[in-house]
């Protein structure tokens, strides 16, 4: 016993180092997303306040650009509306139709913190669960996919950016529906990599990549980017370099998409009857 105490006293520096390092490393590897979200929640209200202050300045400087973007978005939406009126006349007044039910609804939020230079980038939004934001909502900008909601506090929420090496998104080619998974390779914020497209598929530079809609999170057909370069890797699959359509350095207003049928689909897909 005496020897043990003497040993501990003599090597306390190394022993303490090993203990602390062991604790921090196990925390680093074991913290799952849920616990992380809880810790993040506490700190977020402080951080959100600070960023809201800084943002009010940068927002003013970007006003002209944002206006332009909103104007474009308005034109686009107006076009869609006119088409909607026309189809109304045909379908809605002549037939009572119960087939078309709303599956997705959208809300907007403002980006108040964003990074592009880490391996695991996150975005902070100025809306939280008081405004109806929930984890696993899809986040898109007028230009394309941004990410997935991850942690939600009272008035703020964090988004796992597409620029996060942990995030994979199910994507497909617009022209012939072959699907694969898109992820960021951690190098440049303008590019990502699309894997798992079989090599017999005929692809070209400039082909459009959209979301596949196979997950319950993103609707089908949201723009992801365009093919820049490709090579065959491992014999059977392409490794495709994609130029992302969203400019992550320039995010201001984004839309949050909620899937109203998510629970239903999830329940069905995870239902295994006993034999």
């Amino acid at each position: 016993m005496k020897n043990l105490i003497r040993f501990i006293l003599r090597f306390h520096f190394v022993i303490l180092f090993i203990i602390i390092e062991f604790v921090s490393l196990s925390v680093a590897f074991q913290f799952n997303n849920y616990q992380k979200a809880k810790v993040v929640k506490i700190i977020q209200n402080i951080k959100g306040f600070h960023h809201a202050k800084i943002l009010s300045i940068t927002e003013y400087l970007k006003l002209r650009e944002t206006n332009e973007k909103l104007a474009f978005e308005n034109v686009r939406l107006n076009n869609i509306l006119q088409q909607a009126y026309r189809s109304d006349e045909i379908f809605f007044y002549k037939k009572e139709d119960t087939i078309f039910k709303q599956q997705y609804y959208l809300t907007t939020a403002k980006v108040i913190n964003n990074s592009v230079n880490k391996q695991h980038n996150f975005i902070t939004l100025n809306k939280g669960f008081e405004q109806g934001v929930k984890p696993e909502m899809a986040v898109i900008s007028p230009d394309g996919v941004v990410g997935i909601v991850f942690g939600v506090s009272k008035r703020y929420s964090t988004v796992i950016s597409l620029l996060n090496t942990n995030l994979k998104i199910s994507a497909k080619l617009k022209k012939d529906d072959y699907f694969g998974s898109l992820e960021w390779d951690g190098k440049d914020y303008r590019n990502a990599v699309l894997n798992e497209i079989p090599y017999h598929v005929n692809i070209r530079r400039g082909d459009t990549i959209i979301t596949s809609g196979y997950s319950t999170i993103f609707p089908e057909g949201v723009l992801l980017g365009y093919i820049d370069d490709f090579q065959v890797e491992g014999g059977n699959f392409y490794k495709i370099k994609v130029i992302l359509s969203t400019d992550f350095k320039n995010l201001t207003y984004i839309s949050l998409i909620s899937n109203l049928h998510k629970q239903e689909q999830f329940k069905l897909e995870n239902f295994f009857p006993d034999d």
Partner: peptide, 19 residues
């Protein structure tokens, strides 16, 4: 770590440096 959403990452690196 608290501010960067990276539990354990900066802690272990700084403890390593202090060691």
């Amino acid at each position: 770590d608290l501010f960067e959403h990276t539990p354990g990452l900066h802690s272990s690196a700084s403890v390593f440096m202090a060691f």
